[in-house]
Write a protein that binds this DNA or RNA. Sequence first.
DNA 1: CTACGTTA
DNA 2: TAACGTAGG
Length: 326
Amino acid sequence: MGNAALRDIAVLEEVPFEDLAGSVVAVDAHNWLYRYLTTTVKWTSSGKYTTAEGTEVANLIGIVQGLPKFFEHDITPVMVFDGGPSDLKTDEIESRREQRRTYEEQLETAREEGDEVAIAQLESRTQRLTETIQTTSRELLSLLDVPVVEAPAEGEAQAAHIVRRGDADYVGSEDYDALLFGAPRTLRQLTSKGDPELMDLEATLEKHGLTLEQLIDAAILIGTDFNPGVSGIGPKTAISAITEHGDLWSVLEARGETVEYGDRVRQLFRDPNVTDDYEFETTLDPDLEAARSFVVDEWGVDADEVARGFERIEGSVVQTGLDRWS
DNA sequence: CTACGTTA
DNA sequence: TAACGTAGG
């Protein structure tokens, strides 16, 4: 199903970290945090990532341990958070409740109507980041002076938009559908051991002789996060069919198939809900003491667990000139 | 999401 | 050779 098939289509190239020095990466925060949430939990002894009350704080450890990767290679991350109800801009309880109610109503309505696209969209926004994780992550990033952008909807789409506008050099995400949102350059495996992998939109389109619109149509045939795709159509068949017939509808007509909500999925990728209403500085001036206190004193994370991470941040931010004096 | 064995 | 299903991380 779906997205992994885009790997066979995309033009990928390994890029040495050294080549990325000085660049700005618009990171899909949900994607990045989710990765650290799962891996941190894996090899950290139980209890170190939950408070006495049982609140999950693995995200705080993940952030402290994950950010040095960027800083040590002189990369400035811009964390792009998903919009929607799970992404709360205010701390007022009232508005939280209201937002949540609105979200639940929307989801319920979508389910009643059997609107698969809307359901998938709404669910993808909440996935698994709890409210505590969302708010404490933002707070910690703010103390570390890491830029944060609030997306009106999908963070992936907003990140792509930021790169298209030239305000960042790369999208940072493991998701191949960054391509479908029109991200010119996407970096994958930014958290892994080895060098990152660059996914190039222009090269991908050129390789297959497709327009972005056609690539989106091919993806819809294969299946995306928002639609199941046509049975029997994988990456190869999709591309040759789109090449032969031109677009989604012609392919479907020729094969006597249909794709439910095809037009809406197409629209979602072609014209995603993004905003120009953001701003960020790429010169960082982190308050390490406040950040350490927030993580350790306020949330009860074992000091040893984050000591090394903070050391690395301190060292790298100064040495790589990401601070305001550079 | 990746890897790999199975099936058309 | 391409697509799919399942398991593992």
